[in-house]
């Protein structure tokens, strides 16, 4: 069994289809919806945690892609300019998911994209503007 987070993007014509039902029913994938923005007639974005066997995950993602739903690992959608980070800690103040934490020994910022729920609070909280989250576009 594997657990991984993905960002799904729906084209306008796919907004009315029950993709999550099929992921559960046809591919035996356990889904956890972390974030959803669906605009009928326009586009939609979903952040999902998918849990299943390697084969089922692979087939489930292939099914989504066949239906014009893009499905990319969450960590590819977030960028953090690590080289410029001063480890001030401001972003950790707002990160409830625990994705951004200070290393308790070195006091340097640690970012674990697997824990991110794309709440985007870190984006304005960073005084150096080092986070870019590509959730909608």
């Amino acid at each position: 069994m594997q657990k991984k987070r993905y960002v799904l993007k729906f084209p306008p014509q796919s907004g009315d289809q029950p993709f999550s039902y099929h992921l559960v029913k046809d591919f035996d994938i356990r889904i956890n919806i972390l974030r959803a923005e669906v605009w009928p007639g326009k586009t939609g974005s979903l952040v999902l945690e998918l849990e299943g066997t390697t084969t089922n995950l692979k087939n489930g993602i292939a099914y989504l892609q066949e239906n014009q739903v893009s499905c990319e690992p969450l960590n590819k959608k977030i960028t953090w300019d690590n080289a410029r980070c001063i480890s001030c800690g401001n972003c950790t103040a707002v990160c409830f998911a625990g994705a951004l934490q200070m290393d308790p020994e070195k006091w340097e910022l640690q970012f674990d994209p697997e824990k991110c729920i794309v709440c985007e609070l870190c984006v304005p909280a960073c005084p150096l503007n080092l986070f870019k989250i590509d959730f909608r576009e």
């Binding site: 001063i86 480890s87 001030c88 800690g89 401001n90 103040a93 308790p104 006091w107």
Partner: peptide, 25 residues
């Protein structure tokens, strides 16, 4: 403060620094 949690008026609150200890070191 550095343990990550303080208690204020009976309520446990998560803490975060806003100045860089790693740079200070």
């Amino acid at each position: 403060l550095r343990s990550g949690e303080i208690e204020v008026q009976g309520k446990k609150i998560r803490t975060a620094p806003v100045s860089s200890l790693s740079k200070a070191r």
